[in-house]
Write a protein that binds this DNA or RNA. Structure first.
Length: 753
DNA sequence: CGCAGGCACCACGTG
DNA sequence: GGTGCCTGCG
């Protein structure tokens, strides 16, 4: 190793980190506590390999989120330049999908296979349950899918399931003996549709490597170095794939796994810490490095985290420490209601900004469930604090977007039944439920996709002419997508399908919104077409077809689009926060039944997982950590009382800001007004409207010229009301877009004069 | 037979 | 608050 390399980046590492980076050959396991420079080690390690002369495309780096992959690539690029783009870095799902696009024919799938997302998979399962004459009471969709998913993740085929006495007797005892039959049918139907669900992307990658020796050899020899981030989140199937890729005759087993057992939070989707323990047995002479120095957080936070995680029995021994002494103690906010919690958090944020000079982008609010975001959203809006929400309903999950994309999918893959079901009568073209049911039956009886059945068998129903028209249209689209660019084809489909026209004619606020979303999708497609370089492993791919575009987006999530570049507060689930850090973190909703979740209360192992999740949450904070809970909360349509979360007490009292006794639930003092500081006004603060004292009036009482009050936007004046009962209202306190168009049908407005 | 509106039921986390 | 199913009407 040359002197020059050492000077460029190795000095930025501590001793253990450096050893881990330099251990380029053979199996390596890095146990990395939160904030210990894990990503730094991974990226420097890859950069180091490239500097040593390893070709970038011989390196496979697997992550769990697109975000982590992108960050990794960016950081490698900083060290070695644009050649970093040729590293195979990405999520398990996206990289395997890419490989399957090339190799799918070896396992009996078309190369332009569709990817079924959760909605598609749900819909297919429901269809099957019904077709078997079962009801969804006995066979809840979620349960069936989780049985199927877990079977796949453990490499249990439907046939193996049928002879697995454990699984079958579990199903019998649960009075659901038909799950195996549903599973078999689900697999058959996916195959027929040329579709893979998320689990199949992994499963089929495994099959490909396992069943086709020359393919196995091809990828084994290509991926000379394999690295896995967040290894504690891998499931059995993922680990088996990793072993297939890295363990073979004559291999040096250059595999490096990085993880932290204390941050394993995905057991619900089959992740197992066993993999970490197993690694040392499966590979010979594993070099183990433990990164224990935390560079992120102050001692109060690190100490709290250590104490909390100590309540978990099973774990790899390590002691996280930091040199950052002093700092602020942890604050605890106790609220009576969930609404009050929202207000108090917003107040506290304002105080933070003023007292500690933190900017919005330094702040994150973390919650257990995405549905908690709404209240915080409302208060932040009222206080004029900009925010971004990660997670929740993704752009690609919106109805109008899914519908248009379903047309794309169907045109690319005629057998994609889920896409077919979605668009056959949208926009309305007089093909109703009865016809669709008949079609499904027809296809099922003949073991064909619907499109195949339609072209092979004369359909006798009343809707025949309309069906012929529909099929013609889809075939016309299909012809266009091979000759046109993605953008041209997408515009044509949006128009000819009747989707844009439908929303234009409707003219409501909601439709306009949808139209806008469709336009942003089209804009995105245009960008895709105009982008002159697409990173694609070894080659810069020149394909600008709609099919190619579909491949790119099918595994995208919202988090891949939203950039927090305009100084906003971040709101997200604790799961989504893993790997991120903020100067000031608010962990909210710390109540029994919520965090820990009510789903976990009966199972100690699941409580441990909730605790690890809490551990992840608090270790996101660099300087300021605030915890909060509410005594009562609106849940499932009624008010519920919850005890404060057990996790609050697991942090020693010394780490808290206020002196409090830890015995009874009322022990937690109201946060003191600190140093006489008052929550100052920032920008134009909207008046706080108490939802309890808010009295909206029926819409017919609203007239032009009235002064009204809106929960979110505050005071305003009705400028006009048009014939479709859309009011244009000017809101005085909004900084931007003072005028809003509000559909009176839905609006809740109080008259103030 | 198709459609709109009403209504029950559901909601943990992710690719 | 969203959505998928059911019902009664055209």
């Amino acid at each position: 190793m040359s002197q020059e390399i050492a000077q460029t980046y190795l000095h930025e590492l501590n001793e253990i980190q450096r050893q881990a980076v330099l251990a380029s050959d053979g199996p390596v396991m890095v146990i990395a506590g939160p904030g210990s420079g894990k990503t730094r080690v991974l990226t420097f390690k890859i950069a180091h390999l490239i500097k040593l002369g390893v070709a970038p495309w011989n390196i496979l780096a697997l992550t769990f989120t697109n975000k982590a992959a992108r960050e990794m690539k960016d950081r490698i690029e900083k060290v070695v330049g644009s050649v970093a783009n040729r590293v195979w870095a990405g999520t398990f799902h996206s990289l395997f999908a890419r490989i399957l696009r090339v190799e799918a024919q070896h396992i009996g799938f078309p190369n332009d296979f569709s990817i079924y997302d959760t909605t598609d998979s749900k819909s297919l399962v429901t269809e099957i349950i019904k077709s078997l004459g079962l009801n969804t009471k006995n066979y809840p969709n979620g349960l069936v899918r989780s049985r199927i998913s877990s079977a796949k993740s453990n490499l249990i085929t439907p046939k193996m399931y049928a002879v697995n006495e454990d699984l079958m007797s579990q199903d019998r005892m649960g009075n659901r003996p038909m799950i195996q039959v549903i599973y078999q049918k689900y697999v058959d139907k996916c195959k027929q549709a040329g579709a893979m669900d998320f689990d199949d992307l992994l499963l089929n990658m495994f099959k490909l490597l396992y069943q086709v020796p020359e393919i196995r050899t091809k990828y084994q020899s290509q991926f000379r170095y394999v690295l896995v981030d967040e290894f504690q989140d891998t499931n059995y199937l993922q680990y088996e794939i990793l072993k297939l890729l890295s363990q073979y005759e004559g291999s040096e087993e250059n595999v490096c796994i990085v993880g932290d057992d204390a941050q394993s939070i995905y057991s619900f989707r089959g992740a197992t810490i066993e993999n970490i323990l197993q690694f040392e047995t499966d590979y010979k002479n594993v070099q183990v490095y433990k990164l224990e120095q935390n560079y992120r957080s102050t001692n109060y936070i690190v100490e709290a985290a250590n104490q909390v995680i100590n309540h978990n029995k099973r774990q790899i021994q390590k002691k996280i420490w930091t040199e950052k002494d002093g700092g602020e103690k942890i604050k605890l906010i106790k609220a009576m209601t969930d609404t009050e919690e929202g207000k108090r958090i917003a107040d506290s944020i304002v105080e933070h900004k003023n007292r500690f000079n933190v900017s919005n982008s330094d702040i994150a609010i973390l919650y257990r469930t995405n549905s908690q975001s709404r209240i915080f959203e409302e208060y932040l809006r009222r206080y004029n604090l900009p925010y971004v929400i990660f997670g929740g309903l993704s752009f690609y999950q919106r109805k109008e977007i899914k519908d248009l994309i379903a047309y794309f999918r169907l045109a690319v893959n005629l057998d994609d039944n889920e896409a077919f079901k979605r668009v056959i009568n949208f926009p309305k073209r007089g093909i109703g439920k009865t016809t669709v049911d008949q079609l499904l039956q027809l296809a099922d009886d003949n073991e064909m996709s619907i499109m195949q059945a339609l072209s092979a068998i004369e359909f006798k129903g009343r809707a025949r002419t309309k069906l012929v028209e529909f099929v013609k249209m889809i075939h016309a689209f299909r012809a266009k997508i091979t000759t046109m660019t993605a953008y041209e084809a997408a515009c044509l489909i949006a128009r000819k399908s009747g989707i844009t026209e439908l929303y234009k004619n409707e003219g409501s606020m909601e439709s306009m919104n949808r139209l806008e979303n469709i336009n942003s999708l089209l804009d995105g497609i245009q960008e895709f077409v105009e982008d002159d370089l697409i990173e694609d492993g070894e080659e810069y791919n020149q394909d600008r077809s709609l099919a190619k575009y579909l491949q790119g987006i099918s595994l995208m999530t919202d988090q891949d689009n939203e950039e927090n570049d305009n100084d906003s507060i971040t709101l997200m689930s604790t799961h989504a926060a893993k790997g991120l850090e903020y100067r000031s973190v608010f962990v909210v909703g710390l109540e029994e039944n919520l965090f820990p979740s009510y789903m976990s209360l009966s199972d100690p192992a699941q409580i441990d997982e909730e605790r690890r999740l809490f551990y992840v949450a608090i270790t996101r904070a660099e300087e300021y950590l605030t915890l909060s809970y509410a005594n009562t909360r609106y849940q499932y349509g009624s008010v519920r009382n919850n005890e404060p979360s057990r996790f609050i007490e697991e942090i020693p009292v010394d780490n808290y800001d206020a002196i409090i006794t830890m015995r009874n639930p009322d022990r937690f003092a109201e946060p003191k007004s600190l140093g006489g500081l008052r929550a100052p006004r920032i920008q134009k603060k909207l008046d706080y409207i108490d939802p309890e004292n808010f009295n909206p009036v029926p819409s017919h009482k609203l007239k032009e010229g009235m002064k009204v009050l809106h929960l979110r936007f505050g005071k305003g004046e009705i400028i006009s009301i048009d014939e479709s009962k859309i009011a244009t209202i000017e809101f005085y306190d909004l900084v931007e877009n003072q005028e809003k168009r509000i559909a009176l049908r839905y609006a809740k407005l109080e008259i103030i004069e």
